[in-house]
Design a protein around this nucleic acid. Structure first.
Lengths: 217, 217
DNA sequence: CCTTAATTTGAACAGTCGTTCAATCTAAAA
DNA sequence: TTTTAGATTGAACGACTGTTCAAATTAAGG
């Protein structure tokens, strides 16, 4: 941290930018698929179609690369969620279901929209959220937006303790991630069922959060 | 599978049993901490205080060892849950809150009871549930009991589709695992809050499952 | 006790790991 | 065009990976 990088003297070429993007995309898929330890720089390089040395050149150390990958989409997702929240507030007073919808829907629609990279990103977030090793990374990438939604919910339920709102948020996020990356479990437990069910997920989270907020207010 | 093991001609010594237990316990902690790929046989051997060769002798290949570790506590936990369910049924007609309580409480109380191995087991289950690579292992270890609870819930809500019940089960399990192994996230998002909150978790799951079951009945 | 199955040791095997770097090639800036 | 920062190659580094096995040790069964 706080290391001065030597200032660039030339703009990166189009080829360089393209290579960098291919490496980051490949790293995202491999990290999501196999976790931090299970992912190998060589697998990432091979998937990106480059030499191993290039991964270090564009992504730094393995840990820096992981950090880069996680942070990359966090900003974009945050923006979508905050925008949804502001749009909803403009049209009507916010209620709990709407707030949770603004948090959950943007990501799940991206993940279910056929973009495998957003599905992979969900698995990545699950890894980061589950492992205390990434505590600082989680705080840096997710806390600001999470706190924003927590504050929005807390304003609706002034009697609820802060721990209760935070617990609801964590439970809701875990259900959302399970919805995306454990869909195969749902299918395995109920052969031949429908699949998607975004509204059902939001209904689950809304009812759960509402229940714990009103019972300790 | 279906390989005939050479029949034992002697009972294992007390020391052998003790060594085997130390290796399995060490493997449980290391697998939970670092995942399948991140765990090394040498780390496990070192934690157990034995030579690397002994791990293969008592646990087989790395994959067989992982399988062994996951399956070991699954049976015990299943028994606790089914017992709780039968005991509850004997004293009163089952309702949704009671069924979910019987599923969630046994594990969370073990994990919060100070036994670090049960916390580790939760992380292990999270790994298995998240990764399609362990689909067969998950089916073998968890499906029977999960199906039992799903059937019990479905009987209470005859109008609900099977996919809805399965989704509720998966969401509830994910919230339960998050409760145990993402407690640090709750703490990070709400400094100075209480901590435990098992009843709050069960209230969350009950309300969530009830909501999705009654809305598509 | 003795026999010998079972356990434990210690070391080696062939690969893979993340990282580094001189040499080479590409293309931005002057 | 020339200069040369930056991108890319290809190979090497030591450390670590899971697995195997002959030899030594332990202890159950007779």
């Amino acid at each position: 941290m706080f290391v001065l990088e030597k200032q660039r003297q030339r703009a990166p070429s189009a080829r360089s930018l393209q290579t960098r993007a291919r490496i980051l995309d490949a790293a995202e898929l491999v990290f999501a698929e196999r976790g931090f330890e299970g992912a190998s720089i060589r697998d990432i390089a091979h998937l990106a179609g480059v030499q191993v040395g290039l991964v270090a050149h564009h992504g730094g150390s393995k840990e820096e690369l992981f950090h880069l990958i996680v942070a990359r989409r966090a900003g974009e997702l945050s923006r979508l969620r905050i925008n949804a929240l502001e749009a909803a507030r403009a049209s009507a007073p916010l209620d709990l279901a709407t707030i949770l919808d603004c948090f959950i829907r943007p990501y799940v629609e991206l993940a279910q929209g056929g973009d495998s990279h957003w599905v992979a990103y969900g698995r990545l977030v699950a890894h980061v959220s589950a492992d205390p090793r990434w505590r600082d990374l989680a705080a840096e990438c997710f806390d600001r937006t999470a706190q924003r939604f927590i504050a929005e919910i807390a304003a609706l339920f002034p009697g609820a303790g802060p721990g209760t709102v935070a617990a609801g948020q964590v439970y809701a996020v875990s259900a959302m991630l399970a919805h995306v990356h454990s869909a195969w479990r749902i299918g395995a437990l109920s052969p031949g069922s429908d699949a998607v069910g975004l509204d059902r997920l939001i209904a689950f989270c809304t009812a759960g959060v509402y229940a714990i907020l009103t019972s300790d207010g």
